[in-house]
Design a protein around this nucleic acid. Structure first.
Length: 455
DNA sequence: TGAAATGTTGGGGCG
DNA sequence: ACGCCCCAACATTTC
């Protein structure tokens, strides 16, 4: 009788789980194991912990129904794994590879003491699969993407195992209680339905609608990918027919690029882990950022006076998710208009985002700030009003998240400070009281940013 | 996966 | 009829 531990980290699923599959094929019995890692419990945002616990609870229910209960322990990974190995006599630990600095350190340490076998699954193709001819990593997206696209397909996703053998009775900690997350129902099944809905309803128009902040035209899969409720290979397999269908090809190929960006940033983080600490570009490490707590506070709380920025920031604070276009606009606003260090924004997003992932979040911020790989040039400064007109033409996104502007007519919704005083009075909205006046003059702020970056 | 500044063109008003 | 000005509308360059 041989025993393997399936060490669950960010692969909270039974479908297409190679770590689980490997454990099942290598051993007679498998112990599903989750460690409430003290380090991660300290650094992970409460919102993500809640989502994690909720999904973990559902996974635990699934496992219990299969007669193979989840074992949960709290503490240091190496210590808890060693203890469980001793208690169960397990010969092997199977887990899914992860690529952050912390994950590498943790797994290397465990590997040096115990028999740990890592399987790929967090990405369609692991880091270093798409590299230049000389074996070095790409730092530009487009050539990376072309190589990545040409890699042999990863094969069909694995089905969820139908049968799991019960294991010996082991002590288990309760999973911390969790609440529902609006818009993102927990559990593998809900995630799979979420994917199907996107593919059937929105993918065909994705290319033309994805920037419209008021629509649900994006996949909103990020929280599920973040915790491995869905594997990207599973997503790809279900997505593939839509790529081949001429009716949905245009939207599908645009969307695949986004999946490509996710993989690109994992590659970048793995090859250049210092990006998590400083700018990728050496000549962009000494920008004279402003230290202005009031402006930062206004940005964080959605009180900058620029409706699209504020709507995005309030959507983030209230729901843990923000439309990608709004992320770009609000990030551009922080780094360019307020000239506040992108790392401050990166940290705030990590604190708020349900899908917060160091690789993608860092990549996105460095892209916006112009400090990263294949970044937007520093002089590309979004005009928050122009962006608003373009991507929320009726102002309905703004009105959803800024109820104080709900009655502002269309022609003023993007720049409410231009409303004449008598109109403000008749609407019962005073700009400067009920909703802030703009905290910067965009035109001046733009010049200031250009000057600062030029140095 | 910008936007502003600057340059060019062409039609219409008008002396 | 002609030149001049104005100014959209579009194109290019610059940040």
């Amino acid at each position: 009788m041989t025993t393997a531990i399936w060490w669950i980290r960010r692969d909270l699923r039974l479908t297409d789980n190679r770590a689980l599959q490997n454990a099942l094929s290598e051993a007679d019995q498998v112990i599903p194991f989750f460690i409430l890692d003290s380090h991660l419990l300290n650094v992970e945002a409460p919102r993500r912990q809640n989502f994690l616990f909720h999904n973990l609870q559902l996974l635990s229910d699934q496992l219990k129904a299969k007669g193979c209960p989840l074992v949960v322990r709290r503490g240091d990974p190496l210590a808890e794994l060693s203890r469980l190995v001793e208690e169960s006599g397990a010969e092997l630990i199977c887990a899914e590879a992860d690529y952050s600095t912390y994950a590498h350190k943790r797994d290397n340490l465990v590997e040096s003491k115990l028999n740990l076998k890592l399987e790929e699954g967090l990405l369609i193709h692991p880091p270093w699969a798409a590299v230049k001819a000389d074996g070095s990593p790409y730092t530009m997206f487009t050539p990376f993407y072309n190589t990545w696209l040409a890699l042999p397909l990863p094969g069909n996703p694995l089905p969820a195992p139908t049968h799991l053998k019960p294991h010996i009775d082991l002590r288990s900690e309760p999973i911390p209680s969790a609440t529902e997350t609006a818009g993102f129902p927990a559990g593998e099944e809900a995630a799979q339905r979420h994917l199907e809905n996107f593919l059937l309803l929105s993918l065909g128009d994705y290319h033309s609608q994805r920037d419209r902040v008021e629509l649900a035209a994006t996949s909103q899969l990020s929280p599920y990918l973040r915790f491995g409720i869905l594997s990207p290979r599973y997503v790809y397999a279900h997505f593939r027919p839509f790529l081949d269908n001429p009716l949905t090809h245009e939207g599908a190929s645009k969307w695949l690029r986004e999946l490509g960006w996710r993989e690109f940033y994992f590659n970048i983080m793995d090859a250049f882990p210092f990006v998590l600490r400083c700018a990728f570009r050496e000549n962009m490490r000494d920008i004279p950022w402003r230290d202005c707590p009031q402006d930062l506070q206004a940005w964080q709380s959605g009180q900058t006076g620029f409706p699209l920025v504020d709507a995005g920031m309030r959507q983030l604070a209230q729901t843990g998710w923000m439309h990608n276009r709004a992320r770009m606009v609000s990030a551009s606003f922080l780094t360019k208009d307020l000239l506040i260090n992108w790392q401050t924004g990166e940290a705030w997003f990590m604190q708020q985002l349900l899908d917060g992932d160091p690789a993608s979040n860092n990549g996105g911020w460095q892209w916006t700030a112009g400090t990263g790989t294949d970044a937007a040039p520093f002089f590309r400064i979004f005009n928050p009003v122009t962006q608003s007109r373009k991507f929320d033409p009726q102002g309905s996104y703004i009105r959803t998240w800024l109820p104080e502007l709900a009655n502002v007519p269309d022609n003023f919704i993007h720049e409410p400070w231009k409303m004449p005083a008598d109109l403000q009075t008749s609407l019962g909205v005073q700009i400067g009281a009920d909703y802030p006046s703009p905290i910067v003059d965009h035109n001046l702020a733009r010049r200031r940013a250009l000057a600062a970056y030029k140095k």
